[in-house]
Design a protein around this nucleic acid. Sequence first.
DNA 1: TTGTATGCGTTATCAA
DNA 2: TTGATAACGCATACAA
Lengths: 348, 348
Amino acid sequence: MSQRPRRATILEVASAAGVSKTSVSRYYSGERDRLSADMSRRIIAAAERLGYQPNPMARGLKGGPSGLIGMLVADIRNPFSVAVMHGVEQACREQGLSLMVCNTDNDPEQERKHLALLSSYRIEGLVVNAAGRYSEALSQLADGGTPVVLLDRALAGVDADEVGLDNAAAVDMALDHLIGQGYRRLLFITEPPAQASSRQARLDRFQARCAEHRLTGETLSTDLGDDDALAAALDRLTSPERDDQASDAMGPAAILCGNGQVTLAMTRCCHRRGISLGPLGLIGIDELDWCDLVDPGITTLAQPTDDIGQAALNALRNRPASQAGRAPRRLLFAPHLIARGSTQLSPG
Amino acid sequence: MSQRPRRATILEVASAAGVSKTSVSRYYSGERDRLSADMSRRIIAAAERLGYQPNPMARGLKGGPSGLIGMLVADIRNPFSVAVMHGVEQACREQGLSLMVCNTDNDPEQERKHLALLSSYRIEGLVVNAAGRYSEALSQLADGGTPVVLLDRALAGVDADEVGLDNAAAVDMALDHLIGQGYRRLLFITEPPAQASSRQARLDRFQARCAEHRLTGETLSTDLGDDDALAAALDRLTSPERDDQASDAMGPAAILCGNGQVTLAMTRCCHRRGISLGPLGLIGIDELDWCDLVDPGITTLAQPTDDIGQAALNALRNRPASQAGRAPRRLLFAPHLIARGSTQLSPG
DNA sequence: TTGTATGCGTTATCAA
DNA sequence: TTGATAACGCATACAA
């Protein structure tokens, strides 16, 4: 409709209200109490009429607060990431902040670009859940004073707090549950650990605890791309034809899936091969929509994603002014066991 | 590490390189060919050393291209939205654009805020998948010349193209499939149609086609909040105790779920009540991770989400300069039927 | 081919 | 309590 739909500027509002632009600026900078009632009235009237809204770019140029939080997500299609993002978002809303999300799709180049963008938009904080490599750009941002929180991964050389799952506790819970249910031969499956510290942490803990308990604890690292690797591991676990000893004597077998993606891939693999769960144990880290729906129900360790998201934003905001030399904080959350049929040896 | 981690400015690069800032600006504005080799070399060296990167805010202030595409998502936890977002993102990457995503969580206030933000960041286009109400802010943005594409919903009064599923074709496919499989009593379940035009379109088509075929075609609109509504509808459909006529004579019953969320809720409802699918038909619009995993497999109509995402970005970019009076384009995509056990009357 | 000067919309500093 | 003016970092018309 309108011929000149360009957004009104502070100057236009000022002249329309018959005041100086400084006053208008003050009004929008939260110094309303320092303006006379009459002035406030005229400003708001003019602004209303012109549909004025301060331009964040110009604002940002001057260095004022942007009210912007950024979030970098490695894989937007991972339900866990989305769930946490939702938590961050809720927290932002409560504090009147806006959240901008960039998906890097595990592409370092994208990560760099998005980082540069967010940084130049003067975000007041950044939640990062990106590829686990060291990032020069990220480090620069953190050194530049922008609070950074690492989500679900640690990154050496970057001055940032960490928020995520208590991986050791999670693995312990999984193992205790499996052992308590009578499983004795364990297999841990993970996506490549090099890409995320949490994967490595879970893997390490798994191996340590298995050794402690003197249990057979094998591990498989795969990118889930080829079903064959999963199938092979499955065969090894389920077929009792082993050289060393009679595996039956060693008791039933169970799989611990390192995250939701693995749980999906593994469940699918079992489903295809007609392997029924329960007799073969299956427990996964991360709760998913469908875990109560597929056959005996998939036992999971649910992460408190909302809490994690909230904590991430809090860590961003409550950070002590002087960071120098301070050891990064680590906010770890315990998971919640949801026991279902897939870890029940005999159908209840 | 660095004491003065503030990002380097064009001026600093210029003086470090011993040239004027204009030349540096030119270098970064794609006019490198108009600079002498020597100058280019010095500029890039200085920029490299200082880690210089142009400030998009300052750039944006002047009105240059921002290389930014915005996307508004109503519910980030909806896998369909995420899948489309991924498509948009891929397309952006190919064109060297950055995508910023804001989740409105179906909150009009959030939508308004995010819209204002994106708009002020001079986005070159906006993909909107938000609540289906008319939005003054959105309309203003579109009138202001920013290309807008409506995703999966129409919005009267907004000058924008539409991209999404061919809802009529989808419902037709579903109905043809169900009827072909022998189902005769049909129930369509949708989330509140008022919130999204696509829901209404699917509902309308369902009713029209059922009338055409002289089939019992009931509908249920629910927000999925209470399981009871679903359960009641289920009972009505499955229990043959009806007043009008012997329902058995009318043949087997099937449910068409209006989207993925409905499919999930309905599958869960059936699962809880021990109703086996197949004998009760179930088909859902939207393919989901777990559809091949739960009991007989859930038949779905998969949307070509990547194509839709691509098309959305294309619509944004290839838009004729003068929009005035032009009827909005409508880019509709046909779904792809994935037949599974849930629409097979007798187990194959 | 290179440089100078000006303006983009806002906030901050200072003066009134 | 208010206003004039100088930055902020960059692009661009214009001059050299």
